[in-house]
Design a binder for these strands. Structure first.
Length: 109
DNA sequence: ATGTTGACGCATG
DNA sequence: CCATGCGCCAACA
């Protein structure tokens, strides 16, 4: 069981309409937040590159955001700009003008 | 074994 | 609020 498998298994448990953070996932698994980011980043490379369609069906990678409630994939070229936010909004997560969401309200506990 | 690479986070100025 | 700095560590070459 690789470390990234643990990350994926836990991410799979985040319910639709809720979000988690790299720090939270890391804390639950006893891992550094960076490792969590590394594991999810790996998905973008391993999965088929058809129009930015990562395995969001099987692994809801989009539900993991940073501790400030903002999207962290916008600096990656593998993922289209604002794709993550759009998927989350479709799931019911609301973002404000500054592309920030209220963790108090949507953070998975 | 060794060096590099990050979807991070927190402290500090 | 913005900018650095640094600890952190799995995976990979």
């Amino acid at each position: 069981m690789k470390t990234y498998d643990k990350v994926y298994n836990l991410v799979r448990k985040i319910p639709k309409g809720k979000v988690s953070t790299y720090g939270q996932i890391g804390q639950m698994l006893g891992l550094n937040p960076r490792v969590v980011g590394w594991a999810l980043n790996r998905l973008a490379k391993v999965s088929p590159k058809r129009q930015g369609s990562l395995p969001s069906e099987t692994i809801p990678w989009q539900r993991v955001i940073n501790s400030k409630g903002k999207i962290s994939t916008n600096k990656l070229q593998e993922i289209p700009l604002d794709l993550q936010q759009k998927i989350l909004e479709k799931e019911g997560v609301v973002f404000n003008k500054e592309s920030t969401t209220d963790l108090k309200k949507y953070l998975w506990k």
